[in-house]
């Protein structure tokens, strides 16, 4: 039995997962080019985390569950149904951007239609929000669950603790996934936490916790699927730590050569989950030379189209500055 059939995933599903991961990577790469060309002011990257983001999203019920993604979650938002065009509209800060109409920086996702909570820049405030959604689901006998992500540095925030504790006390249908990419801007993991694993913190809350290899889509999918099942059957929240590596600087304004070696980054790139997943799909004859070429071409043309569209789209009129302060 193959890894994907063991998890009940069809060939189409795993190929779709790969397509979305690859899309996230290619969109991100394009945004760096646009930034360096002076077309967009800012990029904050998903590179190195696409595998865990997409695999986790596929383990949710994408028709009814709620998400509170953090700023690197291009893979999550694509998997939930945000389009490349919408991401480009956000990057270009155009009026049509569904996340904020160009009010927020890139990476600040939100879509009521996709049940994706609007996010802010102060990190980890989304954890109590997801817990509040979980509470509302429980109160309304809604079998939806709330899935929230954050970085490992953010797991030091008070809101992480307050939210996780609340969710555990009330046995709420919440999955908290920490995307441990080893760095909080320049500060490495061992200067952020003294515990061996971020998931060890689950013990203190009385909830289930586990650490998975974020580069392994099957491990992440299994972990989130089991957490979702537990949440739906009333067994409460789960803390998942997905471990990967941030392959780019923190953002387009960062220079990671000031705090980590190029050798370290090079080694991490060799372990990139996108490479091993591709190899898996080729080995199982799911990804062929032919459909891979077609996939890359389709993604490229969608990105080209989205870039042109977003570049040409209008900004919000200054007249709208006062809209949406109150109803």
């Amino acid at each position: 039995m193959t890894k994907h059939t063991e998890l009940g995933l069809s060939e189409e599903e795993v190929l779709d997962m790969y397509r979305i991961m690859l899309t996230a990577r290619r969109v991100d790469e394009r945004m760096w080019l646009l930034n360096r060309a002076g077309k967009i002011p800012f990029v904050v990257s998903c590179q190195g985390q696409e595998v865990q983001q997409v695999a986790a999203s596929f383990a949710l019920n994408r028709e009814k569950d709620y998400t509170a993604p953090y700023y690197r979650d291009v893979g999550v938002v694509l998997a939930l149904g945000m389009s490349i065009k919408e991401l480009m509209l956000q990057a270009f800060a155009k009026a049509e951007d569904p996340n904020s109409g160009g009010r927020q920086m890139p990476g600040h996702f939100g879509s009521r239609k996709l049940r994706m909570l609007t996010g802010s820049s102060p990190v980890t405030t989304q954890v109590p929000h997801a817990v509040g959604v979980g509470l509302a689901c429980q109160m309304n006998n809604d079998d939806a669950i709330a899935f929230v992500t954050l970085g490992e540095g953010s797991s030091n925030q008070g809101d992480f603790h307050e939210g996780a504790n609340f969710a555990a006390v009330h046995k709420l249908p919440v999955i908290i996934m920490v995307e441990n990419n080893q760095y909080a801007i320049s500060v490495a993991l061992n200067e952020q936490v003294a515990c061996e694993k971020i998931s060890d913190r689950a013990i203190g809350y009385g909830m289930h916790g586990e650490t998975v290899d974020g580069n392994d889509p099957f491990a992440v999918y299994r972990s989130v699927k089991q957490a979702a099942d537990r949440a739906r059957e009333g067994s409460g929240p789960t803390l998942i730590e997905a471990v990967s590596y941030r392959l780019t600087p923190h953002s387009s304004d960062d220079d990671d050569r000031t705090y980590r070696s190029e050798e370290e980054v090079k080694q991490a790139k060799e372990k990139d989950g996108l490479i091993s997943f591709r190899e898996y799909l080729i080995a199982h004859n799911i990804l062929t030379e032919e459909n891979e070429k077609e996939m890359e071409q389709t993604i490229k043309s969608l990105i080209d189209e989205a870039t042109d569209y977003a570049d040409a789209a209008p900004y919000a009129s200054p007249d709208t500055l006062f809209d949406g302060v109150y109803q």
Binding site: T125, V131, G132, L135, N165, F166
Partner: peptide
């Protein structure tokens, strides 16, 4: 009428999440 843990940011933040849900 929910007795919460002693944590004010969660009282506000969980309330905000529930409000976004529609409560």
């Amino acid at each position: 009428v929910i007795d919460t843990p002693l944590a004010e940011s969660a009282i506000a933040g969980v309330g905000i999440g529930a409000a976004m849900y529609g409560m």
